[in-house]
Simulated assay, not measured.
Amino acid sequence: MRSTTTIDDMLSVTMGTTVGLIEIREVIEKDYTIDEFDDKRREHYIITIRDSIERLKKFAEDFQNTTFTNWVKRHINFLEEDLKQQLFYEELSDNLRDYLLQTVDYRTNKIKNENHKLDKQLIMKNCKENRTVG
């Protein structure tokens, strides 16, 4: 059995790295699935919060009590700020997940191309060695 060459070792490393990137991609895809469920939950949350805000405004108008109206305004401000933050962080999370997936895909393709070049070099080297032996 022949000893390994630098090309063999490099090919082995890049193939191992490719497998790692494929595993990372699978995890990101699972996160997309989880996010779909979370988006449905959030959609219900957003509808409920907006409806609550409208009902509180109407209730405060009907009640005509300064103390209660001030409490309602504070509560509405809290709900509106919470909703704004929910949407902001969801967008950040979606953008990060998209970036991760694009980066993993780019790196995987780059390594696959490098593997192809190394494979080609290894085949050419083996062909040359076989010609000189025979």
Rank of each mutant, 00 (worst) to 15 (best):
A60G: 03
I46A: 11
K128I: 10
K30V: 06
I49M: 13
I49Y: 00
R25T: 10
D8Y: 11
R55P: 00
R97N: 06
K125V: 01
D39R: 10
R107T: 08
R131T: 05
L118N: 08
R2V: 04
V13W: 06
E90G: 03
L11C: 06
T33D: 03
M15T: 15
D62C: 04
W71I: 01
E23Q: 11
R131Y: 06
L118P: 02
T33V: 01
T48G: 04
E90D: 10
R107M: 05
K57S: 05
I111H: 14
M1G: 09
T108L: 13
N70E: 08
Q102D: 08
D51L: 11
T132E: 13
D35P: 00
T18D: 08
D62H: 10
G16I: 01
K120L: 14
K58E: 08
L122S: 14
K73W: 11
I76P: 06
L118S: 05
H75G: 08
I123W: 14
I53A: 07
E114G: 03
T4W: 04
E54F: 03
L21D: 01
I49K: 10
F68S: 07
L118K: 08
R131E: 05
N70L: 07
I34F: 07
L11E: 15
D38N: 14
L122R: 15
N77S: 14
N115K: 13
K84P: 00
F78R: 15
D119H: 02
D105Q: 11
I22K: 11
D119R: 13
N70D: 07
S12F: 05
T108A: 13
Y106R: 05
E43T: 10
L118I: 13
M124T: 03
M15I: 15
W71Q: 03
N109D: 09
F68E: 01
K40N: 09
N115L: 03
Q85S: 15
Q86G: 00
I49T: 15
E23A: 07
D39W: 03
L92G: 03
R50N: 13
T17Q: 11
E80M: 10
D9K: 14
M15P: 00
Y32M: 08
L92T: 09
K125I: 01
K30W: 02
E29Y: 07
S3H: 06
L118T: 04
L87C: 08
L92S: 04
L101V: 03
L92A: 01
G20V: 00
Q64W: 01
D38F: 00
I49A: 12
F37E: 08
E81Q: 10
N126C: 03
L118M: 09
W71G: 01
E81G: 04
Q102T: 03
L101W: 06
L79F: 09
V104R: 01
Y99N: 15
E91A: 15
T33L: 14
K73A: 09
T103Y: 08
D82K: 06
Q121T: 04
M1F: 11
Y32K: 04
T14N: 10
D82N: 02
E29C: 12
E43P: 00
N70S: 05
G16H: 02
V27R: 10
S93E: 15
V27W: 06
M124F: 14
Q86E: 12
D38P: 00
L122A: 11
F37Y: 05
K128C: 13
T69P: 01
T103V: 04
